[in-house]
């Protein structure tokens, strides 16, 4: 398959249905790249005409803003908004809840107004519209636990879309001790993932993964590349690499549809 940029579409005189905002982790982090590819395959499979910005995409500025560097954030934002507005982008789907939140909530005041969806919301709409037919598949009946990322869950009140996507695969969703609005953080947000944590008794990601272990599920479904990094590290710290995996919801769907191994 060929991934086309917005410029490609315009050159061909076409308009894509959505812009897929890949994000820095999705572009560069090896693990998150697999999520990016899985999501692109799903889009292709469902016949969604999607574009990426390619090398014109740049960090949304989320980590800078959360770390207190407002100036750098707003510089990034205005550059990105210039690119997005230049192409006349209307609808954006992001595979990272941080990118999703920043573009959706913080860009409008700076001149960037788009319809922004998180990929789990978009997947749900594809399923609801019948564009993506899930027929049980690989995860049918398997125990899965779902980790609410703070920026999608509490931060934006999206709790059900990811769960409905999991339900569509007829998997056995088991909730952790804390979930939905009470769901515990993985420890990455607020730019924590870019520095050592302050001294304490324990790491946040291990505390969270212990809750996941209690469920007995072998799969922790996630919706955020940073949660994925943190939780995978937590699994390692608990010595459970062989028993448990963190898998993004896009990958679950791609696997259920036989699009990836």
């Amino acid at each position: 398959m060929k991934v086309r940029t917005y410029a490609d579409y315009l050159a061909a005189g076409e308009t894509p249905e959505i812009l897929f905002w890949v994000g820095c982790a999705g572009s560069f982090d090896q693990r998150a790249q697999r999520v990016t590819k899985a999501f692109a395959k799903i889009l292709d499979y469902a016949g969604v005409k999607f574009a990426v910005l390619g090398n014109e995409e740049s960090c949304t500025g989320d980590p800078a803003k959360r770390a207190g560097n407002e100036f750098l954030f707003q510089m990034q934002a205005s550059n990105n908004i210039a690119v997005l507005n230049g192409y006349g982008v209307k609808k954006i789907v992001a595979t990272c809840p941080h990118c999703f939140n920043t573009i959706k909530n913080e860009y409008p005041e700076l001149g960037g107004n788009y319809e922004v969806l998180h990929h789990t919301q978009f997947l749900q709409s594809l399923i609801n519209e019948g564009r993506l037919k899930i027929k049980g598949g690989f995860y049918k009946g398997k125990k899965i636990t779902y980790h609410d990322s703070c920026y999608l869950g509490r931060g934006n009140g999206v709790y059900e879309a990811p769960r409905e996507v999991i339900a569509a695969m007829e998997a056995d969703l088991v909730e952790m001790k804390t979930c939905r609005s009470k769901g515990m953080c993985c420890g990455a947000g607020g730019a924590q993932v870019f520095k050592e944590s302050e001294k304490g008794k324990k790491e946040i990601n291990t505390a969270r993964i212990e809750q996941a272990i209690e469920t007995g599920a072998k799969v922790v479904a996630s919706n955020c590349p940073f949660c994925m990094i943190m939780l995978q590290d937590g699994i390692k710290a608990c010595g459970k690499e062989n028993d448990m995996k963190v898998i993004d919801i896009a990958e679950l769907i791609a696997k259920a549809e036989d699009l990836i191994d």
Binding site: M1, K2, V3, T5, V22, C24, G26, S27, F28, D29, Q33, T36, K37, A40, K41, V52, G54, N55, E57, S58, C59, P63, Q76, F194
Partner: peptide, 19 residues
């Protein structure tokens, strides 16, 4: 344009891989 030390020109390499 990314929080890590990668060149912006390599941003879409995943798409080439995918292809």
């Amino acid at each position: 344009g990314a929080p890590w030390q990668f060149a912006q020109s390599e941003r879409a390499n995943w798409a080439i891989d995918l292809e």
